[in-house]
């Protein structure tokens, strides 16, 4: 009975976190961007600095009419947002937040594998939406999404492999158990590659060519309205949370911190994730959008070689210290 309760509790916490964290990131983005651009951002909803703005948005989205274009492939079109969103929930479940058994929702042996594989599914949602909309712009957006996924999945994988190699395991908590502070400089290249590649997969600026409004309206999401559109948005922010969390766990030592790792490890994890999330927002404000071919070129000629170099470095150091 205790087991069941335990599992139920974990699931509940996960669900809540999954719904809340993206909203926090979203709100932070609103405000940060505003301040960086010398404005105030949302100020009214909820009273204090417009903290409830996103919830108000949510309520608005739910009330909006849900339009499915006559030409569209109805089923696929309707399913796409769910496909985009749900994988992130599953990934969140396996991220270790603190040390030990209780540190994460679920402990999975092949953690890195699982995470990378499931995250890949999320992009499928964009693809489905892009294809099912029966809209040229959506289709183009979908294709760009796919191309981007293809280009950046590889460096991401390689960078993750480098960490797995360093730790000698593919389990996420195993990696954290083996973490030493000097891994930080050792794996720094991999970390950057991983993070950048993750950004690109999320189609966050400056890698937001697939939704480039000046060219193709809103890419794969052009035809979406109401709740389904909201889901896509939610998926994007959930993706930021997951990416930052994952980078934290893989490269930044997760719950390890200068002090208080045992009891307050989860705070360290959240803190690091938050800093990374800020970086994500920061990048959006600072960088112009990259062209499609520049995108590809960056992946293949910079990130992949860098990741390979990182693996080589990891291997050499690993053998050297044995």
């Amino acid at each position: 009975m205790n087991d069941v309760l335990d599992v139920a509790l974990r699931l509940l916490v996960l669900l809540v976190a999954f719904l809340v964290l993206p909203l926090v990131v979203g709100q932070a983005e609103h405000k940060t961007m505003a301040h960086m651009q010398g404005r105030l951002g949302p100020m009214y909803a909820g009273g204090f600095h417009g903290w409830a703005q996103l919830m108000a948005d949510g309520v608005k989205f739910v009330q909006k009419e849900d339009i499915v274009p006559a030409e569209a492939d109805r089923r696929v079109f309707q399913l796409a947002p769910a496909v985009a969103l749900l994988p992130y929930l599953l990934v969140l479940a396996v991220l270790p937040v603190g040390p030990g058994e209780s540190g994460s929702g679920v402990h999975v042996d092949a953690g890195v594998f699982f995470v990378l594989a499931v995250m890949g599914v999320g992009v499928l949602g964009s693809l489905m939406g892009g294809w099912a909309s029966a809209n040229k712009y959506s289709l183009l957006g979908g294709l760009r999404t796919a191309a981007q996924l293809l280009a950046y999945e590889l460096p991401m994988l390689l960078a993750a492999a480098s960490v797995a190699m360093a730790a000698g395991t593919v389990s996420l908590s195993g990696i954290l158990d083996g973490f030493q502070w000097w891994w930080l400089p050792w794996q720094i290249v991999g970390a950057v590659v991983f993070f950048v590649a993750g950004l690109a997969e999320l189609q966050r600026p400056p890698f937001d060519m697939p939704v480039a409004d000046s060219e193709i309206i809103f890419g794969a999401y052009t035809e979406y309205t109401g709740l389904r559109f909201a889901f896509f948005l939610l998926a994007e922010y959930a993706g930021i949370v997951i990416l930052c969390g994952l980078t934290t766990v893989l490269f930044l030592g997760g719950w390890h911190g200068p002090w208080g790792a045992d009891g307050l490890g989860w705070v360290w994890t959240l803190l690091k994730t938050a800093v990374l999330a800020f970086v994500v927002i920061w990048l959006r404000v600072s960088f112009p959008r990259m062209r499609e071919d520049q995108l590809q070129k960056l992946a293949w000629t910079t990130l992949v070689p860098l990741a390979l170099a990182q693996i080589a470095l990891t291997g050499i150091v690993k053998v050297a210290i044995q």
């Binding site: 796919a146 280009a151 999945e153 590889l154 994988l157 797995a164 000698g168 593919v170 293949w300 291997g315």
Partner: peptide, 22 residues
């Protein structure tokens, strides 16, 4: 790019089991 990806990414599955025996 799809070709490139298919070829490279699938190759990299070898990295993981091998990383563990390292």
């Amino acid at each position: 790019y799809a070709f490139l990806y298919v070829i490279f990414a699938v190759d990299s599955i070898f990295l993981f089991p091998w990383a563990t025996v390292f």
